[in-house]
Amino acid sequence: MSVADAYEPESTGGLPISLSRVEKSFGALNVLGNFNLDIPAGQFLAVVGRSGGGKSTLMRLVAGLDGADSGRVNIGGRKVERLHPSVRLLFQEARLVPWQRVIENVGIARGPNWQETARRALADVGLEGRENDWPSVLSGGQRQRVALARALVSEPQILLLDEPFGALDALTRIEMHRLLERIWTARGFTTVLITHDVAEAVALADRVVVLREGAIALDIEIALDRPRQELADPRAVDLQRRILDAV
């Protein structure tokens, strides 16, 4: 924690998200039907489910990348019509621009004073000194760190994570969990993590929602102490079992 504490921006807080009676189909396939979900500001929510259960669709609706067929998706009390400026998205792949250096990737939006803020965001994810590297020389974990720094640089109030750690090895994944938990604790943005890894959901989230065939099959609170010790807590194991039963 000591190195990490060197720089923390002030808590930017989060925005609440609410979905009410949302319908979304792709052709004949009804992905989400009469779907309701309220996410309070600052909550860390994990959405667990099998592939094709509607997880990514849910995420794209909240991000404003896709529109709902009917119903409302609200962010901070306002209807989402297109991309919301304080929503940031971390994809399954890092999606770094190969021909831009690390620092240019982080400051992709080129806001005012972008180099300084990008440098600080990189330091925040433990990548100081790598500003001028090309993305191609980074490891998978480092790429996702750069992507995380890119998401954090604009101080988002909502962070959406679409299985961003799925392709990482187990040790790197645990490192990323610690990093994410620390940053989330400091900043308090609303977080939605899409994952198929139940242990990851229990390790990170305040609340886990299980999606099955476009509906919520389970909605439980994870009231474990933070920072969390993965694997050690018997309560975590019990929660994981309950979630797995619902998936």
Partner: peptide, 9 residues
């Protein structure tokens, strides 16, 4: 990449 760019404004 194009989608990422639009998400990042």
């Amino acid at each position: 990449l194009v989608e990422m760019a639009s998400v990042y404004g």
